[in-house]
């Protein structure tokens, strides 16, 4: 079982990102589960969301304490949240930042997802780009399934733009990290 924790801010779509990743895994033939951290939701406040992916039915219902991957949608969270808390030793962080050389003591993959979101969507909502980046780094889900899940989540033009944002981020990660 692979466990992923998303860190974001209320309104940045961390929960939607976790759900899109779960759906993408499902389209790839896996079992999945995604849920928000059950806390107080306020726009802009730090939030978490979780995704589990497995080859068999997932019955586990507790929160994720020792993730395999951490996805950080907003590097400003580093000031107030220990995003690598409980991360497995050989786990990895995928983080939205303009700093290429950021190292959080774990395998760290960086991407300027805000730049991509502003370019492609015109707003700094990075969740779909971050799922694309996750797919590019981990290859745990295919970009085709990610795009399919995005198009199902957002209807019409918005869906197409978000699928594009995911693809741009995916390709950038492939180029950067192979």
């Amino acid at each position: 079982m692979i466990e992923i924790r998303f860190h974001g801010r209320g309104g940045q779509g961390a929960v939607t990102a976790a759900q899109i990743l779960a759906k993408a895994a499902f389209y790839d033939g896996k079992f999945c589960q995604a849920f928000p951290f059950f806390g107080v939701e306020r726009r802009g406040a730090p939030v978490m969301a979780f995704t589990r992916i497995d080859d068999k039915k997932i019955t586990l219902r507790c929160q994720i304490y020792n993730p395999d991957y951490v996805v950080v949608q907003d590097s400003s969270l580093l000031e107030s949240v220990n995003v690598v808390d409980g991360l497995k030793k050989d786990g990895a962080v995928i983080i939205n930042t303009v700093k290429d050389d950021l190292n959080l003591g774990f395998k760290t993959y960086t991407i300027d997802a805000t730049g991509i979101a502003l370019d492609v969507l015109g707003v700094p909502i990075v969740n779909t780009a971050m799922v694309g980046a996750f797919a590019g780094v981990t290859k745990l889900v295919t970009i085709e399934s990610v795009k399919k899940a995005i198009l199902e989540t957002f209807k019409g033009k918005l869906g197409e733009k978000n699928a594009k944002a995911a693809e741009v981020a995916y390709n950038e990660m492939l180029k950067k990290y192979g």
């Binding site: 801010r9 802009g44 969270l77 700094p124």
Partner: peptide, 8 residues
């Protein structure tokens, strides 16, 4: 303090 929430 909520200043870290900003994107802009």
């Amino acid at each position: 303090k909520t200043g870290t929430w900003r994107t802009f």
